[in-house]
């Protein structure tokens, strides 16, 4: 058993196990930190940078999803500076792809949209990049619209870590990174895809969707994931 430590989050005294992250302890105590790439039940990559927090005595900002709690730690999850950075990160994401909420299957059920609203973002202060991206509708049941993809890699991780298929991966680098199936073959022709649909359910935006859904009809059910992860841990005896 790991030790229990006490720490302060936003001045509030809280306790947590030493193997828990700042994000876990904050959420247990009802303190909300925005995240996009994090999902309970998957490994953490610290890529979206929305969960950055200030820790007293550390000059850098630390991602709450991968930072373990320690005794006497003093964490600030919300400050003028953090809010500004978070808004800019979401603005960058909107400017990167082609996000048009009004015609999106996930309108109203989109984590990117929710985060933007939570951060009180009313306009995008950066030039849109309007990339040209092809929709992949080759799969019989699901579709991929990369215009709405924010490269959080949740689908990559759920496919690799939970389903064990590793159909998804990222190709290219930097601003040219893109989500691909297998060795960049159309999704419908993928030899590894089991059509389980886990990737669709945990996709935070409308990038992965079930065919036949119209605007705002695509609701996602990611709740299976913590349950699966818990059962797996129990089986492995941890």
């Amino acid at each position: 058993m790991s030790r229990v430590v006490t720490l302060k989050i936003n001045g509030q005294d809280v306790s947590g196990r030493e193997d828990e992250t700042v994000l876990q302890v904050a959420r247990e105590n009802g303190i909300e930190i925005p995240t996009l790439c994090h999902l309970e039940g998957l490994s953490n990559v610290g890529a979206c940078r929305l969960c950055l927090v200030e820790v007293k005595g550390v000059s850098r900002l630390l991602p709450a999803c991968v930072t373990r709690v320690s005794e006497g730690m003093e964490v600030t999850t919300h400050s003028e500076r953090l809010e500004r950075y978070r808004r800019m990160i979401v603005e960058l994401l909107f400017s990167e792809g082609n996000h048009v909420c009004s015609v999106c299957v996930s309108n109203g059920h989109c984590e990117l949209q929710d985060t933007a609203i939570q951060l009180r973002l009313d306009h995008i202060g950066m030039p849109y990049r309007f990339p040209v991206r092809q929709v992949d509708a080759s799969h019989s049941r699901y579709g991929l619209d990369p215009n709405r993809c924010i490269l959080c890699t949740r689908c990559v991780r759920v496919c690799d870590e939970i389903e064990g298929a590793h159909t998804w991966d990222i190709m290219g680098r930097g601003i040219n990174s893109q989500l691909i199936t297998d060795m960049h073959t159309p999704w419908g022709e993928s030899e590894t895809c089991t059509s389980c649909g886990k990737c669709v359910q945990i996709c935070p935006t409308g990038a992965l969707f079930i065919k036949g859904k119209s605007v705002a009809e695509m609701t996602k059910r990611p709740d299976f994931l913590p349950y699966l992860a818990m059962m797996r841990n129990r089986k492995n005896g941890s």
Partner: peptide
């Protein structure tokens, strides 16, 4: 921008902007 790996948002999109 060309050498960014594309993993984190600030570097991937920020350098392009």
């Amino acid at each position: 921008m060309a050498e960014s790996c594309g993993k984190c948002v600030p570097c991937r999109v920020g350098t392009a902007q």
